[in-house]
Simulated scan of single mutants.
Amino acid sequence: MTAPDQPPRMPEHAAEMHLPHFVVKQKLTMMINRYEVSESDESGNPTRLMALAEQKRMAFKEQVTFYSDAGRSRPVFGFKARKKLDLNAGYDITDESGAQIGFFKKDFGASLLRSTFHVEGAGFTGTGQERNQVVGLMRRFTDLDFMPIHFDFVDAGGAPLFSVERKMSLGDRYRVAVPDQRVDFRVAAAVAVALDALMAR
């Protein structure tokens, strides 16, 4: 006797808000960096606006807040430096109520040769590095702004958590793939924007 079809079981630590892929688009103005985060199809085409953030271009990058719409009527998540004058202390990622849902920090020592970040979320810890070390070195020592910025994040066992790939467009555009269902969309989105903001794109 054939058992009836059962819905797929969710992982034990599946995130409250998981999206398998989304895009982050940066829009530049004279004074403000604007980031739009949209759900996407498998080809990377935006399908639904999820959140947006605005940041003064010359502002100290200690906090970024994401809102549900352009009117900034409701904050939905954000990240904030633990110590204003010591970015090496890392950033807490919080939900709309201010509760912590994740954490990330740049590994400044490892980043001398290859940009490296550490990330934590519910049920996982991981590390992300630039995919191509040669390109990373060239980007550091030249003024060429078209260099790709591709990061791969893996968990402690080496399994992929999510990846961030820069696509050429008017203003930076990043395609984010999140195969691990433990990774909350808000955590991956915060890290994707931070990669751009903290590297002064």
Rank of each mutant, 00 (worst) to 15 (best):
T2F: 08
P4S: 14
D5M: 14
H13F: 12
A14Q: 09
E16F: 12
P20G: 08
V23K: 02
V24H: 02
V24L: 08
M31V: 06
M31I: 10
Y35L: 05
Y35W: 05
S40R: 01
E42M: 09
S43K: 13
E54T: 15
A59H: 12
K61W: 11
E62M: 12
Q63D: 11
T65N: 04
Y67D: 06
S68A: 14
R74A: 11
V76L: 12
V76E: 05
G78L: 00
A89H: 06
A89E: 12
T94A: 05
E96T: 07
S97L: 05
G102T: 06
K106C: 05
D107R: 10
F108G: 06
G109Q: 04
L112P: 03
L113I: 05
T116I: 11
E120C: 13
G121K: 09
G123P: 13
G126E: 03
T127L: 11
G128Y: 10
R131S: 11
V135D: 01
V135E: 01
R139K: 06
R139P: 08
M147W: 08
M147H: 05
M147K: 00
D152E: 11
A156M: 14
A159Y: 10
L161K: 03
V164D: 01
E165S: 11
G171E: 06
R173N: 08
R175C: 03
A177T: 08
V178G: 02
Q181M: 05
V183S: 04
D184H: 01
D184P: 01
F185M: 03
V187F: 00
A194S: 14
A197H: 11
M199N: 15
A200E: 07
